[in-house]
Nucleic acid binder design. Structure first.
Lengths: 179, 179
DNA sequence: GTTTTTAGTTGCAACTTAAAACCTATTAAT
DNA sequence: ATTAATAGGTTTTAAGTTGCAACTAAAAAC
């Protein structure tokens, strides 16, 4: 197969999850497969006709995505030729990324909102543009952001279990991010 | 060069910007270059050592990203050997996508928040997880979303065959989600 | 029992990547 | 002024990846 991005430790002095994410879903057709799956596509031949991908590549990507825990593969009960691919929670959790990317394309490439439009099913109004939010929900622009070292955010840490503490802390408040 | 994704018109009966976005920044090292640029890297040799990319590939990607309007290329005044690459607004606007992807990796791959941590410079607290928001700012999960045809959202446009369109579309996508 | 459908695999040519060597214009060091 | 080093590329070549078309195997339909 392939061994893409590694290293990276040098950047901004810390570990960033981006290269890891890219290793898993950064490959050439993954987002298109993901999009099809989010649209309800679940069978090999349907992915094939939905996306303009080659057979062998699709087989390869589906295998990889299943291995990565993004999808599950299950032979159908009623028709044993068929296989059903379904997104896991992990796969579904890529939705914000996908929408952000699509919105970017809408704004900067096509210039036109995609149709049909993604809406809140409660009031049937279009969803907002994906944005970065502060702790208190204010929308943040790039200039409002800064990188702060873990150690500075949790000043009471002793070397021994700092990681645990940070993990616990972040789990509690449900927010994170860094470079 | 390359001619990746096209087609796509078939999916869910509308045009989606995702393939277009992917054509521009979906290529193998683009997000890593983008991240380095967001971290302040601006010179060829610095990208080279920051990211583990090959010279020729970097040259190629930078050219493409400049062509795509994501970066600008400007020879330095004080040292004419050097070139400065800078993100355009279009490039900077990929930040939410990048953060969403990184947060996904934090949650599902590394399991640990990256260090240093991206914070609001106003109160120095970590930013929130990127999420989808309703019109009124409520956080939306995947099941809260639906796809609505443009024609249905703007009811004045052309009364003639609106119903047909909506009915056909809903039949096509069932009750699914993203595009 | 023959054909069709589904989900693959295999073989091969075309293309892309990666690593290293090379090139050219500046700038810095002697 | 001459030489060395740096910056940003380009070229060359091997290795790896893609994409097309043809093939396979199992199950279902006719």
């Amino acid at each position: 197969m392939e061994k893409i991005r590694e290293d990276l430790s040098s950047l901004a002095g810390g570990e960033c999850s981006l290269p890891v994410s890219l290793e898993v879903i950064g490959e050439r057709w993954c987002f298109m497969i993901l999009r099809a799956a989010l649209n309800g596509v679940g069978h090999f031949e349907d992915f094939l006709s939905e996306i303009g991908i080659a057979r062998n590549i699709l087989a390869n990507r589906l295998t990889r995505m299943v291995e990565a825990g993004i999808m599950t593969r299950r032979p159908c009960d009623h028709d044993k030729r068929k296989v059903e691919y379904r997104l896991t929670d992990k796969g579904q959790d890529l939705l914000p990324t996908m929408i952000a990317l699509r919105q970017w394309g809408e704004r900067w490439e096509t210039g036109v909102p995609s149709n049909p439009i993604l809406c809140d099913s409660r009031d049937r109004k279009p969803i907002r543009k994906i944005s970065m939010r502060a702790h208190d929900d204010r929308v943040l622009e790039m200039d409002d952001l800064c990188w702060i070292d873990e150690a500075e955010l949790k000043p009471d840490s002793d070397g021994a279990n700092r990681d645990d503490m940070v993990v616990r802390h972040l789990r509690e408040i449900g927010e994170s991010t860094a470079a």
